[in-house]
Nucleic acid binder design. Structure first.
Lengths: 339, 339
DNA sequence: TCCTGGCACTCGGGCAGGGTGAGTGCCAAA
DNA sequence: TTTGGCACTCACCCTGCCCGAGTGCCAGGA
């Protein structure tokens, strides 16, 4: 167990290192913080902290920098979540209130997060599987060709073209459209499969039944199509603030950011509620081993329909970043609930 | 006027510099190319080329590198468009054929272009203003609240929520929907305003007329909303191949890429038909002064509905890049026409 | 037992100096 | 007009050097 003072030393090291980006030594520490002890004492504490794996020195005769384990302790026990300032809150409201549709909300959120945290922002579109259906629309493109349009309560629109086994009359189409909507309108995606199960049987002609089955199959397929989960990223220019050695650092990060799969998996690991902070090697994906990811779910109601977060260097201002991420997530949730 | 051999020397310089990324000297040139003359002669030619502003030396006693003017001459007179190899063509087909909807087409195109050219790819979504309407759908969300869904022939879907001045019955809604579609279905956006001009008058009740007017206003607004033109970018990780000094180079480029406005303006300057190459300082936007942009329009029919291109260092393989951009644009056009 | 001041040691970073080689410009001869 | 020769110029690299921040250790003091 680390003594109170040693924790205080660790906190001071993290704060200084985040500020200056340079290894911090014992003398500088005692000068900048009122620890009430001499540099020599701090040196001893540092030796212990290093032995325990919380800090390390890049090379002999240099100051110390926190390790991933050190940051972890800092986040878990030494730092709170810094609430945003009033101007910052106001900025969030001003910025998000003007959004006209879902794309716009997500786009603005990304830019806002990137700006507030000065890091790379990632925002997932509200996921289909957790939302409910506002409306299903069927359009006839050609005699045997339909377009299925699915509108969710988060404002997202999905479309699919369906080739039918046989032509489908306008009357039957209107009929199907009406029945579909009365059954699934307002329902959760998860509930849909049972609700439409017996729908084909209620049509008389075999051809119609075949078409209805095709349409339903496409609908269900659209609902479960996890791979279609989209996301938006922004603030990549902030990567250039990473450090001096960054050609090596920035490359894999950019690559990771382009791999939607990686990012989705990354966000997918977020706990349903509450904020998740993944530090350095805690990230499964190798390219992100020198970055930290702060993420949180957001949603229109009480529960999360999607996630958002930021990616930055392990050397980041955790309290501030966490505060910004949480505040933005809350307000985006509100916006979605209103629209 | 430059003699034939001097042009040949310029071409050799450009090719070598693009390949090696290092200033090229007279001796190396004669060794790598069969110019049939001695290094001394090449030196004289180089002196002339430098005087004319086609090449420059980074510092005394270094080799020469092409200037923007040099690249311009190279592109205009010395280089053709290199056709793609058969495997590359096949890759394009394989990669794009699996696309399921418009988002997917654009996404795949971006990744494909980035991969083929090893540079940053930018693809604009088919613009609304140049496409035609496939279908207009009106849904009732609440008694006095409608959702307008607009489907274009390029598969793009736009949605708007409309608050009506008064409740609007289901019958009237079906009526309006039918009339709207019969008038504007299949028509070009540009023609829509006249086609719907007298629509409100054909409704009897004043309240209905008011609502119809509101709906039409929203529809027209959606049609002209240029700022909604979206685009997708990819391959930013390729920026790390830029050069050694690139922290300074990459920053403004990333910033430019995040500014949709800048990019849209960039693509907007592209000539309607034919490929446009903007080299270095020819780009209006300052951050892109050390990059070249190769772009071209693409479309489902004979005419362009949107543009795509790549952004890379001025030191790029112009013939190859132009070939890839052209080939991809053509095939995307085909895909859009089919769907 | 813990803190403190002192001291010798380490090592990265910055600076100066010299050698190397690719590349140039100029000139006289073919 | 082309060519070979020649002197010159720098960027680059390697070396040796000093400096200073920072460390570990130790002995003395609260």
């Amino acid at each position: 167990m680390l003594s109170e003072r040693r924790l205080e030393v660790l906190r001071a090291i993290v704060q200084d290192y985040v500020g200056t980006e340079e290894p911090v030594g014992s003398k500088a520490l005692t000068e900048r913080h009122k620890l009430g002890v001499s540099p020599a004492t701090v040196r001893n504490d540092m030796a212990v902290l290093e032995e325990e794996g919380y800090i390390a020195q890049p090379h002999t005769s240099a100051g110390r920098i926190p390790t991933d384990k050190g940051y972890r302790l800092f986040v878990d026990r030494l730092a709170g979540v810094k609430p945003l300032s009033t101007p910052e809150r106001r900025a969030i409201h001003n910025f998000l209130d003007g959004a006209v549709d879902l794309d716009d909300v997500v786009g603005r959120t990304v830019r806002l997060l990137a700006q507030l945290t000065r890091q790379v922002a990632v925002v997932q579109y509200p996921s289909l599987t957790r939302s409910s259906i506002r409306h299903v629309e069927l359009l006839s493109l050609a005699p045997a060709r339909l377009m299925l349009v699915l509108i969710t309560d988060t404002g997202r629109v999905e479309q699919r073209v369906i080739d039918c086994p046989a032509p489908f009359g306008e009357t039957s189409l209107a009929d199907l459209r009406a029945r579909l909507n009365s059954r699934v309108g307002g329902r959760r995606f998860a509930d849909v499969p049972q609700l439409v199960q017996d729908l084909p049987e209620s049509f008389e002609e075999a051809e119609e039944r075949a078409t209805v089955s095709t349409v339903l199959a496409t609908l269900l397929e659209t609902l479960v199509e996890e791979h279609e989960e989209r996301l938006m990223i922004g603030g990549t220019a902030n990567l250039t603030r990473f450090g001096h050695d960054f050609p090596l650092t920035i490359r894999p990060v950019l690559e990771a950011l382009e791999e939607q799969v990686v990012l989705l998996k990354l966000l997918g690991e977020v706990k349903e509620s509450g904020m998740t902070v993944r530090i350095g090697h805690e990230n499964a994906y190798e390219g992100l081993n020198s970055t930290s990811v702060v993420s949180v779910g957001y949603g229109s109601g009480g529960e999360a329909v999607a996630k958002l977060g930021v990616v930055g260097p392990t050397r980041m201002d955790y309290p501030g970043t966490m505060g910004a991420v949480r505040a933005v997530a809350r307000y985006v949730g509100q916006i979605l609930a209103e629209s």
